[in-house]
Amino acid sequence: MSDYVRRFTLRQIIQHFCVMVLFILLALTGFPQKFSEGDWARWIIQTLGGIDQTRWLHRYSGILFAALVAVHIQSEIFRLVLRRASPAMVPTGKDFQDAVKMLRYYLGLSDEQARFGRYDYRQKFEYWGLVLGSVIMIATGFILYFPIAVTRFLPGELIPVAKIAHSNEGLLAFLVVITWHIFNAHLSPDSFPFDASIFTGKISREKMEKEHPLEYERMQELTRPAESSQDD
């Protein structure tokens, strides 16, 4: 019996990697535009070759990001419909109970921790935050990219609305990532210094059993008759 179990497929690994690279690129070219009066912002813009180049880089990254999100959503829906994937990411009532349970545990009101399935409520929160946030960012981003075409059909006030929403939603996403994601994947005592499972696709049997016990048990039941396959 190997020490590791497979947790992510190659598709998921590649998609996460693309999101990571594009997110960094978008933040790097977006925030200097939002906070253009700061010295650091001016330095970044200068380094990238001026504001026009920075904007083009932001737009190209945005287009790639939009394509990635589109591919992800359509393939996930397709796979769900064809029953090739389990709806493990869909939030359920249990997630809310888990959240309350964990909060009680953190506050010291109980010593019982929630037992999680394939994805815990924190991961679901982050995933859906990312997907919904991306939809807002892409929609407002394209409004800002083509303001003339948009105002041919829609009122002009939409442009400043899109600007405010785009810049604030971006800030929110960035803040969530540097607090929540960095904490859960790097700084939390369970995963310090680096939870590499999204890059390798593997997770140690011990960690899987501790953090996702329900999923582990389900895997054990599935694999008991035939010990060979451990894919999901």
């Binding site: 303001p147 105002t151 041919r152 009122p155 002009g156 006030e157 400043p160």
Partner: peptide
Amino acid sequence: CHPDASENFPSAWL
């Protein structure tokens, strides 16, 4: 500067 701007466009400016 924006030759294709429509009547709605100026209201983008507050």
